[in-house]
Design a protein around this nucleic acid. Sequence first.
RNA 1: GGUCGCAUAGCUCAGCUGGUUAGAGCGCUACAUUGACAUUGUAGAGGUCGGAGGUUCGAGUCCUCCUGCGACCACCA
Length: 847
Amino acid sequence: MDDVDKKIDLPKAYEPAQHEKEIYQLWLDSGFFNPDNLRTDGPTFTISMPPPNATGILHIGHAVGLAIEDAVIRYKRLQGYKVLWLPGTDHASIATQTKVEKILASEGTDRHTLGREKFLERVKQYVADSQGTIREQIRRMGSSCDWSRERYTFDDGLSQAVNEAFIRMYNDGLIYRGYRIVNWCPRCTSTLADDEVEYEEQQSKLYYIKYGPFVVATTRPETKLADTGVAVHPDDHRYQKYIGQSLDIDLAGHKIKVKVFADKSIDPKFGSGVIGVTPAHSMVDYDFATKYGLEIIKLIDEQGKILASGGKYAGQSTLEARNNFVADLQVANQIEKIEDFNNNLSICYRCQTPIEPLTSEQWFVAVDKKIPYRNKSLKELAIEAVKHKDIRIMPRRFEKIYFHWLENLHDWCISRQLWWGHRIPIWYTDDQQIIVAHDEAKAKAKANGQNITQDQDTLDTWFSSSLWTFSTLGWPDDTKDLQLYHPTLLMETGYDIIFFWVARMILMTEYLLNDKPFALVYLHGMVRDKEGRKFSKSLGNGINPIEMIDKFGADALRLSTIIGTSPGNDFRIYEEKIAGYRNFVNKLWNISRFIFSSVQKIKRVEKEPQPKTLADAWILSEYNDLVEQITSDFHRYDLSSAGEKLYEFTWSKLADWYLELAKFEKNKDEILLYILERLLILWHPFTPFVTEQIWKQFEAPHLMIVEHWPKAGKQDQEAIKAFAELMELVAMIRNLKAENKMRVDNKPDCYIENDFLIKESKLTAAYLAGVTWQNSVIDGVKFNTSHGYFIINLHKPLKEQELENMKKYIADLEAKLTNKAFTENAPRQIVDETRKKLEQAKKKIAP
RNA sequence: GGUCGCAUAGCUCAGCUGGUUAGAGCGCUACAUUGACAUUGUAGAGGUCGGAGGUUCGAGUCCUCCUGCGACCACCA
């Protein structure tokens, strides 16, 4: 061993847990997460981090997003962009309130007992306790986001933005209060937006009720107490005579008055072909009421109890009322039959409680109303932003889904009867006047001395998130940050919230800023377990990203979320996969370790070294090809492809061939260091920790995060071809040795004849193949390669199967070439290539 | 009911605008291994690309139909 003056401090295996925290601290201390500290005049590049719930813990879906976003951010930073990745958290009104209510329930109390003020204090405390957790977990992933600009949807600035947005929309007539049917969750005692309702198939009963001259089928008999209409198909001859009439119906003593009307949406074949219409408690029926002028009788209140309009059933829960009413109908002989029936029950997306549609006075955003000075509706603005390609969605097919959703969007109910959230900036005066204002003081000033009370409701949590890309940069003030970093470039998120969030951000930004929130939407797929199932609490199949980081390192976890995945498609993550990438990270570590220990002096090599051998020319060409390809992959946001190519180059080319051969050819310090230094930079977006740790050995003036992305040099095509021949030769000989049960240290004589390989390359090949090179022809068996042959004292004949395959291959090629249709129609290049292939194949089976 | 996606080696997945005897990782088999790495190396076995038809000189790769999984949207009175 040469005693050289260098110190190598690299243990045998890379232990992520020993380095990651320290490295993250180095990055933090450097200040380079903050674009103000980047010494660059480059253009800006911004990503707004989708804010996780302030009370949540990091789940694997977040980990995927963070890995992708950080890879892009680090790539752009290395490329010299002025990069801002703005982190933050969401107050998640309904989710958080539900969570705290569960805690209260376990303590035997509830929010009403506590009262609004105390409850809010309790939630704030809870958020304060858990916000730090998610922040820490984002750091564990290695996220290079600018913590100095961290925001929270409920902090003062963002609350100001929310009020400003509300007021502008109110003044433009885009927000109104109306008495309408809404989705109501009786447990949350709040409204929900249409897309906050989920469906769950369940077994239920279909009751056939004798209903005046009709039989009406229903899954919810109790609602019939508030029917005001009966619908039939216009062509249904059975009921022609009733259409247009008003009928008095007796339902086990409960009297109702219904108007019979015809609508072609009625299926004459379903049930009895007659529908009892309950406008106050069914979305569809409400539309009927509007269309045909039916009376609306509210039957069920906000607690899910029957109102006075329900007669003797008043005060009962809907379920009690159903049972009692059906029993009464049975006594009155008005139940014709009861069938089993599967239907989709609508449930609350936060607490899974069945939704009770009911009429109520709420605040809405009008999506179809023309904006006065724009002459377009919100809906139109949002559609045009994508249609005119200002915003692109990846993958493309989600654009269609986006359009479909917007085209069918109804007015957005934004008031929630929750306590945790942005209070609606509306005050009511003694004389019923409505005042909209930024705060109570301003509202008072407008009230001319009258008493005022603020609206009790809060805003849909997605209202504040829809402002996220710009409210976080200081809007409504015209800040420097807003000018510099908005619109953002990339919105990376899961396809499951394209409606909740992505669409609403586009809609609000187009309206408020007359601009787009981002140029490109990158939608990652959902993470599934090894069996392809969704992660769920009930299955207990969740993978905790922090546990995985503890076990395998953040770099390995990041790789497993990026390589082998593509936007919009679901993918599986499981321990063995992460362990595989842990192995790779260790390989990269050991490649570096080998190079550092074999070179005379560790140093940075500025210029591409001159190749001295075929292998040198080959590896430099491969490296340059790699730089070119992955730069282009990054440009297209094809991170998976970039990662795969890096992996392939690092392990299969550099480690398996070039390093092995460097042990023989020697004196490759310059090339090894030149390539390693740059390879680490290329890996850095994916595996920031290990690369930064190895980087320390170079004693470079800067941390790796602010190094420069390499530029691709020239490729030597001849060298690539010749080296392919060398690899083929080596593989054949190794194979022969293995087939002949020959030990590795048994090195038979071998003579090599080859057009492509000069003497030095033949020596290298012999070394790699494990044979003793002979300068002149020897006795033995001759084996053909594509461009030459070798003679070796081994007797493995070409296997019968192989020979047959080869003959068939040759026959196929010959058939192709004698086919005029092929030679005349196919491009010249293809035909020539086919001829060459035939020649080579023939050579191989020649004696 | 509407829209869309997926079906490629035992498993997980690549295969872009159609043109090398279809690739990788894991797993499997055999051999090796005190000197970068067993979180390793070398070699090997293993798919004709869900099915049927079509376009084309040529299809895993485009079109049609079918089958099976899955997602989303709508609706189920």
